[in-house]
Design a protein around this nucleic acid. Structure first.
Lengths: 235, 235
DNA sequence: CATGCTTAGTTGTACAGTCCAACTAACTTA
DNA sequence: TAAGTTAGTTGGACTGTACAACTAAGCATG
């Protein structure tokens, strides 16, 4: 049945979905969109990850489709976009066998504060899920994205993409802690960040109610940094 | 154009491809299949990764499709199968917009020594490629798989899946070195393997021309072990 | 003004695990 | 027996994480 000489066989429905993360209100949040509330649609009115069908006439490749769908809902281009994985089966969509190519994106604080499409909204992540029940297998995809992000935060600089353009080291540490859901040891964190080729100080301090803090910014065109060792796991 | 109310729009061709690794002749090898030598097929007679179209009537999900295609060519089920990623674009296949969901598999020495389908053959990997020019974008997929495998070998126990049922520690170390393409430090390697919950000694020694070596086997139903730290990078 | 509190930044020490050199153990060959 | 080889072990140096304790720099209060 596979590798048919002709191409006249049924093909899976093919979509791209994007898990878009940001830190808002001191919490990790994800962008969801509300599906149309019409009876002819699967999961009417339910919340889902942004995404939809691949347009083979307009999308050059999968990543271009992901970039398009992200921009449709947020109006911006993400500083970090990574392919998460794909899900495909007979069971995911009542309309028939379907597959999705999932990506996850990290939005900086300023980008995440902008206007959204009318059907889009930020939701706070609790554990490995959100409050609303999600359409399709999107809860599973969201969980996979959260697990992937958290695993990579243990040994990379990924949360730097969630920061505003200028930030202090304690603020950066806080972003790691929010994603991971646990405190990190300050001196090890500082050593890690200051010895990596990642950030540079700017000639400005953050004034607050206590001691002023040095402001930093990401170095130009910065790819994520990989560290040789993870933070120690929580007990 | 996306999220169309109806489903009467063109869909991408959808395939699953599997990068199957094994160690044979003291080298990392990958299984390739030769495409049909007919003019009506794209890349006639060229070597390609095992795979092909998703059969939406017979394949429950993407992974089932991958397992089927691996078994078609090798006759066995792999002890380790991991999703690698997906590639989809207008440019990969002259027949039209297509997407593939790629997996990589690790075959133990015994499984890799068995009979193959008539069109399949093992090829030695040099650097991040093989000698033959591959069909479609399979050279790119193979490169991604090799990079993924090597990156994960720095901090996991993955090469254990490439071993025969019984092995010595120096043999296990050799498998890591073959995949990584560089020597590893013996005492650190032994500490790593013996303190992980991965292998157990059996009541048998390997007799050879020098000192006898203790034989080990993988502990039952063993998921890969993750280590907190990578081996030090080569200079 | 002094004191206490808070957060920013720093420092010395302990620890786990990687690397290296050197060693002992167990075999084979000349 | 000596030399060579591989298997297995050990002490010390190194890296970077965690911890406790400290100094620095502000603010509020009495």
């Amino acid at each position: 049945m596979s590798d048919r000489a002709g191409l006249d066989f049924p093909r899976p429905l093919t979509t791209v979905d994007v898990v878009i993360f940001a830190i808002k209100s001191d919490a990790l949040q994800v962008l969801l969109v509300q599906r149309p509330d019409t009876e002819s649609e699967p999961f009417p009115g339910a919340w889902a990850l942004p995404g939809g069908f691949v347009d083979i006439a307009g999308d050059r490749d999968l990543e271009a489709c992901a970039v398009r769908k992200l921009k449709d809902k947020t109006g911006v281009v993400s500083p970090y976009l990574e392919q998460l994985g794909s899900w495909g089966s007979a069971a995911r969509d009542p309309r028939g066998w379907s597959a999705t190519h999932a990506y996850f994106a990290l939005l900086g604080e300023h980008a995440a504060g902008g206007a959204l499409a009318a059907d889009a909204q930020w939701f706070t992540i609790g554990g490995e899920k959100v409050k609303p029940k999600l359409a399709f297998d999107h809860a599973e995809i969201l969980q996979a994205a959260i697990q992937r992000l958290r695993a990579k935060v243990e040994y990379t600089s990924l949360p730097a993409y969630l920061m505003p353009p200028e930030f202090t080291l304690p603020e950066l540490q806080r972003s790691f802690e929010i994603v991971l859901g646990r405190p990190l040891e300050k001196s090890a964190f500082r050593t890690r960040m200051l010895t990596a080729d990642l950030i540079e100080p700017i000639a400005k301090m953050r004034k607050g109610p206590n001691r002023p803090a040095q402001l930093y910014r990401l170095k130009k065109a910065k790819a994520p940094v990989f560290f040789a060792r993870t933070f120690n796991p929580p007990e």
